[in-house]
Design a protein around this nucleic acid. Structure first.
Lengths: 242, 242
DNA sequence: CATTGATACTGAACGGTGTTTATTTAGTGG
DNA sequence: CCACTAAATAAACACCGTTCAGTATCAATG
């Protein structure tokens, strides 16, 4: 599809001018998206095993070699998928963080949101949090390299929401005093454990909903002060009123 | 598997008699062990990527096709490795369970033992608990198939130790009342979460020891009764200070 | 409009993977 | 010694990710 030429011309103007707009049979950006979409679809239904260059190419309608015009290698495609998952996760976390709820319930909502996000897209969750693809470190990793902590990675951003909420609760004295980052990590690890087990050992005699509830309950009892009034409240199951 | 018996026929002697000294170029059992050992070694140092039939064969000194005399497919080799890990884990759990310690400390020991076992052999841990190899269901899975719950699988056995200890604590009123299996699952999930994160996102700015301590502490506070004297005790059992 | 030049794309290949098949060969029971 | 079993081989198959020389399509220019 040929559409308006975003030319912007600028004549020859300036030396290296990035104004060189070109319209191919399909714009590179569109093709790129096509590839990612095809890859994500295959990934979602059949896991990594289904995501082959030839398979992707077949679905897009090109040859496998053509993909290399748009991605350095297969890993780059997986990275793009992972990035999409992170974006969705961040969005979800942001929503929960701005929920108009009591602070403790907000944390509960975030945890439940994280777990649900994982269960909704298990393959992508595995990719992002359960496999260590070397290249993931360079851009979308969970932590920045020791050197360049200038701007947070996508993963850090997502974790940051949790950490922020923990910090708020700490300041308010609503949870036991302690290191905010460490506490957030512990909470994350516990939530991650549930998601991880549920999606890799699926189909056994699990009672997922009950386990999730029990886990969240356990975490809360683990971080609440001994004299917290929240301890005496109903264990509160299921979703936050909504 | 029909492999077990090499005896067959054996017109006389009736008893399966392992005395039937077979002196092949190498006895099947030995060869089998050789292959597993080579595979495990490759697995431990380079992860799954290094474990190829040709690579294993090269280390054993045979051709890749020869392996198929001893294993149905590659998955069967991985399964054997997983089984070895389970055996070691079970042994560790059994030791901890028979420790002469206060019941709560025993649980603590089991959790720490589980985590340490995972960190000590990360690749095998990933294989066993973080990848869902289809065939693992048939023999070494975590749970038995709904039908044949006759005898526990290796995984069930390992989980059983944790569940048993939880049941003991429940009976003694040392932890909050609740479903034993569910509680054990929640504890397992939390411990698994720590191991999983530590071994897949290795090399970032983690403080593993502190996270492990914090996680165990959180879990304990999560399951202890509100009025438990253990709450007032020193909050941890590991490094007193540093 | 015709030319040029950049580049998305193709077709074929390379070395790797797990696995299968037919064949050879080693070792033992009769 | 022979016959038979089974371990090991060599060669092939289909698939994988990736590379590369060449083609074809388009935008920009003359």
């Amino acid at each position: 599809m040929k559409r308006a030429k975003t030319v912007a011309s600028a004549g020859k103007a300036a030396s290296d001018a990035p104004s060189r707009r070109i319209r191919r049979r399909l714009s590179p950006a569109e093709r790129r998206l096509q590839i990612i979409d095809a890859a994500r679809a295959l990934f979602g239904e059949g896991g990594l095993a289904q995501v082959t260059m030839r398979n992707i190419a077949r679905h897009v309608g090109i040859t496998q070699a053509a993909i290399y015009q748009h991605f350095d290698d297969k890993e780059a495609i997986l990275y793009a998928i992972a990035d999409g998952y992170f974006a969705q996760l961040i969005e979800r976390m942001r929503e929960r963080l701005s929920d108009d709820l009591p602070p403790l319930d907000r944390l509960r909502g975030m945890m439940r949101g994280y777990i649900e996000a994982g269960l909704a897209r298990p393959e992508e969750y595995k990719l992002v949090f359960m496999t260590n693809i070397p290249g993931f470190r360079r851009e979308g990793g969970l932590r920045a390299e020791p050197g360049n902590e200038a701007e947070p990675t996508t993963g850090q951003l997502a974790f940051g929401f949790l950490e922020e909420q923990v910090r708020t609760l700490l300041k308010a004295g609503l949870i036991r005093p302690g290191d905010a980052e460490l506490t957030a990590e512990a909470i994350w690890a516990a939530g991650h454990g549930v998601v991880s087990l549920l999606i890799t050992h699926v189909g056994f005699l699990w009672a997922p909903e009950r386990l999730i509830d029990a886990q969240i309950e356990m975490i809360f009892r683990g971080i609440l002060p001994d004299d917290s009034p929240a301890r005496r409240k109903a264990p509160q199951a299921r979703s936050p009123k909504a």
